Simulated scan of single mutants.
Amino acid sequence: MEIHAIFLALIQGFTEFLPVSSSAHLILPSVLLDWQDQGMAFDVAVHLGSLLAVVYYFRVEVNAMARAWFGSLRGGQRTAESQLAWGIVLATIPACVVGLLFGDAIALYLRSGWVIAATTVVFGLLLWWADKVAKQHRTEYEAGWRGALFLGCAQALALVPGTSRSGITMTAGLMLGFTREAAARYSFLMSIPIIFLAGSHQAGGLLGSASVMPWSAIGIGTMVSFVSALACIKLFLALLNRIGVLPFVIYRLVLGCVLVAVLSV
C-alpha cells in the first residue's frame, strides 16, 4: 500500500504542473500493473499536496494578489496585482460551470484509455503549434478580462482526461502572446482556486462516507506530492526558456503511442 501510495503521489506531483497530462500517467499503473484505485481520500490528499506546493512557491505573489483583491473590494486603487487576481477569479468560472453541468457525463463517457491517448497526442501538437507561432511579448499581468476568460475556457477543456490542465492553459497563454514563463506562471496561479474547489468538492463527498480512512497512505500521499510538485515547479520554470516546450511535446507523442500499444494488447 505504501509503495503504491509513494509511486502514485510522485506521478501526481511531477505531472500536475507539467504540460504532459497527469491522467495519462495515472492510467498506466492500473493497466500495466493491475493496481487498484487508491480511493477518493488518497486523491484528495495528493491534490492537497500539489496545492500546498504551488501556494508555497508563489507565496509572495499570492499574498500581494490577496491584499490587492480585498483592497479593490473596499474601493481601493486598481493595481496590477488586483487586476491579475480578478483575472484568476474570472478564469476559474468556466471550469466550475462545465464541471457542475457535465462532470458526471465526462467521467462516464470520456474517462477511457483511448480518449486519453488521443487527447495526449492532439493537445500536445496544439501546444507545439502555439509555441511555434506565439509572439511571446506579454506578461501575465497583461491578460485583461478577455484573455482571462479565454484562459478559463481552456482550463474547462482540461476536464476532458488527457488534455492536461497546465498544457492547455499554457497553450492558450502562448496564443495570447504571453512569454513561455508568463504562460506557465499564469497557468500555475490558475491552478490554486481550481485545485482547492475540486478538492473541497471531493472532500465533501467523503464526509458522508462510512469507509475507513487509510491515514498512512493519506499522509504519505500529501507529503510526497508536495515535495515532488514543488521540485517540479522550480525546475520547470528554471528550464522552460532554455529548452522550450518541444521536449514535452515529443514526450506526449511517445506517451500517446505507448498508451495505444498497451490498450491494443
Rank of each mutant, 00 (worst) to 15 (best):
L255D: 00
E61K: 14
I106Q: 09
S22K: 10
K135F: 10
L207K: 10
S21Y: 05
A95P: 03
W86K: 13
G39F: 10
V260Q: 02
Q202G: 04
L259D: 03
L33Y: 10
T222P: 07
Q77Y: 09
V55K: 00
I116W: 02
A182M: 02
L259K: 01
A231V: 15
L48S: 10
L26I: 07
G152I: 01
L101G: 05
A64R: 14
L101Q: 08
G219W: 07
P19F: 02
M190Y: 03
G208P: 00
A231G: 15
I192P: 02
F248P: 09
L240R: 12
G208R: 01
F123I: 07
S166G: 12
T222K: 01
M1E: 11
K234E: 12
I243H: 11
R242K: 15
A183H: 04
L90Q: 05
F14G: 06
V160A: 06
L176I: 06
V260D: 03
S23A: 13
E181T: 15
S50D: 08
S112D: 13
G103K: 07
A217C: 13
T119K: 07
G205C: 08
V55Q: 01
I192R: 01
V31S: 12
S23I: 04
V265K: 15
A117S: 11
F58C: 02
Q38K: 09
L176C: 08
L110M: 13
V89C: 10
A229W: 04
V258G: 09
S166Q: 09
L18Y: 03
V115F: 03
V121G: 03
S30W: 01
P193V: 08
L84F: 05
R242L: 13
K132N: 12
F58A: 04
M223T: 15
A229T: 11
P247W: 13
F123N: 02
I88E: 04
V258A: 14
A217L: 12
M170C: 05
V97Y: 06
A154W: 04
L84R: 05
L255H: 02
F102C: 12
L230K: 11
S209A: 15
W86G: 00
L239R: 15
I11K: 08
T179W: 02
A105Q: 15
F150C: 13
G87A: 09
I93N: 04
N63P: 00
G173V: 01
A9S: 13
A68H: 07
G221S: 07
A80C: 01
M40D: 12
S187G: 08
F226Q: 04
R180C: 02
A85G: 12
A198F: 06
L110A: 14
M170E: 13
A9T: 04
G177V: 03
G113W: 00
I195R: 05
I27P: 00
L151V: 11
A154N: 08
S191W: 02
M175A: 14
V245L: 13
A182H: 04
A172Q: 00
G167V: 06
A64V: 10
G39T: 10
G162E: 00
G244V: 11
R138Q: 12
